[in-house]
Design a protein around this nucleic acid. Structure first.
Lengths: 157, 157
DNA sequence: ATGCACCTTGAACCGCGGTTTAAGTCAAGG
DNA sequence: CCTTGACTTAAACCGCGGTTCAAGGTGCAT
């Protein structure tokens, strides 16, 4: 009785800009509900396009599909989107800020590295000296700091 | 004849701050050469600590192990580290700058999202409307822009 | 000779987000 | 009737950087 055309998976995929295999995958993992069928084939109502858009945006914002599922469950629940959205965003923001800092450090290191003419790591300040002390895991991250715009070791070192 | 103690894989792992399984993995993929053995067990010269440190730093800078292998092959070649370092860093810098921009966009979106009280995506400006036009892949990325500090839709929309 | 810590191997497994493949089904058009 | 194109499924595969497991070997002290 609704005048909406039912869409095939191919049409949905084209309109939403995703692959059909992704849509089936989302259904497999419970992110989208299985639609009705006609002759064994999936038939979608246009509403699914909004859901796929939602998934795409949330994904771009850094959420994993598991987390997006939590958001969707929130939308469907009585309390609405707000609560899971706030708690997941709070948490994700911390991760993203860490990523941002790491990425900035990477960029700084690479900007020096592209000017580097060193023949070996030993003579290059981009690679600190190793071997004296035991390192705890993740120490390298601290090491990709570069002081100047140059990778030459200072004479005194 | 050298006075260096030969190290077991466990000692190397401890000093370098990596797992023994990672060291064996690096040897499997040709990133480290297989060391000499005593009674079937690997024995390393302290020099390997520098190589592991090099790998760690390069990894922190965003290089994949395949790329690090290229760098190491450069070190071992006549031309030295410089040439592969420059070309790989140039290339990686482009990727990292893109990542940086994406990460900043994610951060902006999340900062709005954590204040969001919307009950559903339809009423939330964080999620644009979908369904009218076919989208090309990757369009969602453009959509995670937020104008103000608020996710409420403007009345006129 | 017994235990213990450490080492060896190949193969399987992990998360993540899908894609690909093989083999088959279905509806429409010529 | 036969082809064409889009659909169906389960299962395998992809990159990435490892980790884990099972089964066994080595070397030293007790």
């Amino acid at each position: 009785m609704d005048g909406f055309p039912e869409l095939t998976i191919g049409e949905v995929a084209k309109r939403a800009g995703v692959a059909t295999s992704s849509i089936r995958y989302y259904e497999r993992i419970g992110l989208l509900e299985e639609p009705g069928r006609s002759g064994g084939q999936r038939r979608y109502e246009p509403e699914v396009l909004g859901k796929l858009g939602f998934i795409g945006v949330a994904q771009s914002a850094g959420f994993k599909l598991r987390e997006i599922k939590e958001l969707i469950d929130g939308v469907d629940s009585a309390d609405g989107l707000g609560a899971p959205m706030r708690s997941l965003s709070d948490q994700k923001l911390i991760e993203v800020e860490a990523l941002l800092e790491r990425t900035r450090a990477m960029k700084g290191w690479l900007e020096v590295a592209r000017e580097c003419g060193c023949a070996s790591p030993e003579e290059c300040a981009l690679f600190p000296e190793f071997g004296e002390e035991p390192l705890d895991a993740g120490t390298a991250l601290k090491m990709i700091r570069v002081d100047g715009g140059d990778c030459r070791r200072s004479p005194g070192e």
